[in-house]
Design a protein around this nucleic acid. Sequence first.
DNA 1: GGTTCCATGTAATTAGTTACATGATTAT
DNA 2: ATAATCATGTAACTAATTACATGGAACC
Lengths: 184, 184
Amino acid sequence: MRVLKYAILGLLNRHECSGYDITSQFKEEIGQFWSAKHSQIYPELKKLVDEELVQFRTVIQGEKLEKKIYTITSEGQRELMEWVSASAPLPETEKDTFMLKMYFIGNLPKEEARELFADQLRLRRHKLKDLQQRYEGLKQTFGAEGAEVTFANPHLGHYLVLTKALAREQSYVDWLEEHVQIFG
Amino acid sequence: MRVLKYAILGLLNRHECSGYDITSQFKEEIGQFWSAKHSQIYPELKKLVDEELVQFRTVIQGEKLEKKIYTITSEGQRELMEWVSASAPLPETEKDTFMLKMYFIGNLPKEEARELFADQLRLRRHKLKDLQQRYEGLKQTFGAEGAEVTFANPHLGHYLVLTKALAREQSYVDWLEEHVQIFG
DNA sequence: GGTTCCATGTAATTAGTTACATGATTAT
DNA sequence: ATAATCATGTAACTAATTACATGGAACC
């Protein structure tokens, strides 16, 4: 399926990047939905160069630190658009080890089950708070409060992933809160 | 991390299974949160036998069809409980290729973006409806309508994964409906 | 001078999918 | 009969993580 290929093409389509830049971006908002380690990114970039979907130039940072700046080619753009626009079936499984544990939770002593559940609630609330703060920050870059997000807005992608991550975490916290009394 | 190992131990802890049974269960409710193909399951079972976490006996189905029935050992149970009860950090990334596409959607012609988004809404609504029906079915096996789900209920795991899958899909559909007008 | 970050790679291993391969049983 | 399901395995490949390995630049 080569999702990483398209993730990289998509990032390069926004602006040219080094391998390190791509690694960094996977630690920010888009990392909520896709990421990869540098050890996977560098070989993939090499492959994309071979396939002529990206190009690079070498620049010197400071005295002698070499860095490779990658740009997308028009063939790369074509393949990216083709992939983005193609509708795909839903994944049968969205892996979640906490929920796998929940499937087996009845075998645990109740106190241990309660602790595990409570800890998940604590972690998810913390993450939710973090995302809410990021969202407050994003709203400011949007200028006027309450201004509508349009298709043409250059921050659309950023807005969509943040609101979706927020919705996902809010739903997780809500579900945990609704069921925490089972372990009481 | 060997999650499949614990997924298999958890399933065997409920009742003895053949490799085929495990494969089948990954196509049901728990498959919403974890699954594996038979080509991964059979070698893992062999490994678990080597590690003495499971045992098996061979039974003949009909005339000559051999099938291996696996059971969990007490050491297997011990390792399972240890894993289930251990709290783990949240995953940094919960992969979702549709949302990755959304991050890049601004580059697409608006009509294509609309179609992609509308199609996802269609697929997610369909899945939600399916889960709602399964939930109606589960409620019947619970007996009295409105009866509270307790920790001791033998269907607790099943109930938790179904309600969580339902919450996840409802949240997905809600988010899509809230943002579909961007592409209008 | 030390710590954090910037920067790039490879090697070894583990996890997961797709394809290959075979055959019995059950329901229609 | 024939199709769907039950049943088990291996081989080849792709994807992803962890560990190994190195060194420059910026900040304090």
